[in-house]
Structure formats: structure tokens, C-alpha cells
């Protein structure tokens, strides 16, 4: 890599944290506000891509030891399994459930199976997007 990437790298270090936080916010809030699995996943992927652009691929790979292909597959698996969860309770495939629970810190919180499904979606999106970009950039 060229030596004059210092500015980009310093900015990236800060930006990535912000983007990650923001994407988690987008993802968690997706049920009630704009956001959700797709957007959360894509913005996370964008952050990872930014990391790859700013730093060496090898360096990032050393620090993020995730096989993104498997991550995508895991996402699909989670989504399918939530679908099967409904079947276990005698409902149609992919019936989602939700309820409210008092949790220690958060107070009254909504718990939904849709969130798990959305997690699957987000993982699939992250996995695929990063996998595509990585594959291409590795092709020399």
C-alpha cells in the first residue's frame, strides 16, 4: 500500500466505529423506525469494505477472522430456523411471535422472533456483500 494513506486510515478508524454503532442502531430500531436487517447489514458491510480499502487486506483479515461465506450461510440458516420455530408451535411456517417482558436495565422491552429473523437477514447481507467485494479484490 502507498504510504500517504495516513489521513484515510486515521479517519477510517473513527468512521468505522461510528458506522458500526449507527448500523447496530439501524438494525435494532428497524422494527419501529426506518432500518432493519437489510440496511443494518449493508451499512455494516460498507464499514468492513471501508476497512479493507483503508488498510491492507491481510491486515484486516488477521484481525477479523470471519469467513464471510459461512456468515452468509449462517444467516440463511437462522432465517429458516426461525421459520421452523413457528412450525414447532403448530403455526404456519414463518409465523412470527412477539411479546413484552420487563428486563432489568431496559425496562419494558418488546421481544420478537422477527428480530431473530432479521438477524439472519442482516448476517446474510453482510456475508454476501463482503464476500463479493473480497473475492473481487483478491483476484489479481
Amino acid at each position: 500500500m502507498k504510504p500517504n494513506d495516513v489521513i484515510l486510515q486515521s479517519v477510517t478508524k473513527v468512521a468505522v466505529v461510528i458506522i458500526f454503532t449507527f448500523s447496530i442502531y439501524l438494525f435494532m430500531n428497524g422494527h419501529h423506525n426506518p432500518g432493519g436487517g437489510f440496511i443494518g447489514g449493508l451499512s455494516t458491510a460498507a464499514a468492513v469494505v471501508l476497512l479493507y480499502l483503508a488498510f491492507d487486506i491481510e491486515k484486516v483479515r488477521e484481525n477479523i477472522r470471519i469467513d464471510f461465506k459461512k456468515l452468509a450461510a449462517l444467516g440463511v440458516l437462522i432465517a429458516v430456523c426461525t421459520g421452523l420455530g413457528g412450525v414447532l408451535f403448530g403455526e404456519e411456517f414463518l409465523t412470527q411471535a412477539f411479546g413484552y417482558k420487563e428486563l432489568p436495565i431496559f425496562g419494558k422491552t418488546e421481544l420478537t422472533s422477527a428480530l431473530i429473523f432479521d438477524t439472519g437477514v442482516a448476517l446474510a447481507v453482510i456475508g454476501t456483500a463482503v464476500n463479493i467485494i473480497l473475492s473481487i479484490s483478491e483476484d489479481r
Partner: peptide, 17 residues
């Protein structure tokens, strides 16, 4: 459309490669 956008991304990537 949300679905279409994401699928479109995947298709574009595939066609490009």
C-alpha cells in the same frame, strides 16, 4: 422495492464478475 434493490445488487455483482 427494498427486496428488489438488494437482489439487484447481487445480480449486478454477479454480472460484473
Amino acid at each position: 422495492i427494498l427486496t428488489a434493490i438488494v437482489i439487484n445488487f447481487a445480480v449486478t455483482a454477479f454480472v460484473l464478475v
